[in-house]
Design a protein around this nucleic acid. Structure first.
Lengths: 128, 128
DNA sequence: TAGCATCTATTACAGTTGTAGGTGGAACGG
DNA sequence: CCGTTCCACCTACAACTGTAATAGATGCTA
């Protein structure tokens, strides 16, 4: 898999690495809120699985602890996530947007930002 | 579970019921494109599981075949889907929108529709 | 250097999802 | 009535996900 599918927990672990630089397992674990924080070995298992999926790798060692770094970018992972998500709606955007708005998840600012981004994109296509 | 989590295949089955009215298992199966159509018993298994999840129910019988109808609305199911999806992004809309747009999944029409919907919603809140 | 703390590595297990085979009974066509 | 077809039901199973325990290695501290 060039772009492995990541589960929610796996995503959270990757997020720690994306935003916190190379980390040891203990450090990753501690990025979770105390309340409901998974056990050290749970994080460990997930990290090992992410390693098998080639989503991250052991970068170096400090003491006897391995330090991990991401191998896939946040953007790539999120792209994959969005694609899968759209697949669930048969690729039709309309119900997705409607749902986002009705659920109150989408504010006018979000829409304005989207508009601007769209404009910028189409501009850069026309005038490269 | 008031709003059970539905997987992709389960969604597709519900979709058949939502858009095609009450159906028998064979009919549901035949809504899948020939290419890659799941086996009859595969659909059957999923339908039974959806029954357990109270997402659908046996409505009546024709011959010896059961006819199923949805118990949860498309809207409710999609809402749940969207919520879970946002959960993966930590609830932050911005990267989601950016991803949708950059992937070219979001057209200006989609954004325009979104705008209109937003306007309509805020209006109906102000003037109920 | 002895011991405690910390990691690594291995193993286990339950729930969900997708996939489907087998067995037996019901219905329909002649 | 009899065979063929279709369906219901049960069972199985592998991959993936979340959860964690256990055992053994290693390193730091007194």
């Amino acid at each position: 898999m060039r772009l492995p599918k990541l589960s929610k927990l796996e995503l959270q672990i990757m997020e720690a690495l994306w935003s916190g630089g190379p980390l040891a397992i203990r450090e990753i674990q501690e990025t979770f809120p105390q309340k409901g924080r998974p056990a050290y070995t749970t994080v460990q298992t997930m990290v090992y699985r992410l390693e098998i999926k080639k989503a991250l790798r052991r970068m170096r060692k400090i003491g006897n602890a391995h330090i991990f770094e991401p191998l896939i970018s946040r953007d790539a992972a999120q792209r994959r996530l969005v694609d899968d998500f759209l697949g669930m709606f048969g690729g039709r955007m309309q119900p997705v947007m409607a749902q986002l708005i009705e659920a109150g998840n989408l504010t006018s600012k979000d829409v304005a930002d989207a508009e601007k981004l769209l404009r910028d994109l189409s501009k850069s296509k026309k005038e490269p």
